[in-house]
C-alpha cells in the first residue's frame, strides 16, 4: 500500500513537472498533497496529515491558481 501511494506520488510529480498547462500541474500538486496526507495517516502521524491536507491541498492551491490567473497559463509554442 505504501509502495503504491509513493509510486503514485512520484508519477504525479513527474506529470506536474512535464505538463504544458500549468493549471494541470497545480491540480497534480494538490493530488500529491492529498495522497501524502493519506500516507501520513497510514503511518500513524495524524497531526502531519491534517497540516498537509489543509496547507498543501487547500491554501497553496488557492495561491497557485491566483498566480496563474495573473500570469500565463500555457507554455509558448516552440518555433
Amino acid at each position: 500500500m505504501n509502495i503504491l501511494l509513493l509510486s503514485l506520488i512520484l508519477a504525479l510529480g513527474v506529470y506536474a513537472l512535464l505538463a504544458k498547462d500549468l493549471l494541470h500541474s497545480v491540480i497534480a500538486l494538490s493530488a500529491i498533497s492529498m495522497l501524502s496526507a493519506l500516507l501520513f495517516t497510514i503511518l500513524r502521524a495524524p497531526d502531519v496529515a491534517i497540516t498537509e491536507a489543509a496547507v498543501g491541498a487547500g491554501v497553496s492551491t488557492v495561491i497557485f491558481v491566483w498566480a496563474i490567473r495573473h500570469t500565463q497559463r500555457r507554455d509558448k509554442e516552440e518555433p
Binding site: P46, D47, I50, T51, A54, V55, G58, V59, V62
Partner: peptide, 25 residues
C-alpha cells in the same frame, strides 16, 4: 474544533488556524 481540542486529539493551533483561514476564504 481542531484548534480547541489540540491538546487531546490530533491537530492544534496551526492546523486549526489554516482550516479557519480556508473557511474565511
Amino acid at each position: 474544533y481542531v484548534m480547541l481540542y489540540g491538546h487531546i486529539s490530533p491537530g492544534g493551533g496551526f492546523q486549526g488556524g489554516v482550516i479557519v483561514a480556508s473557511a474565511i476564504v
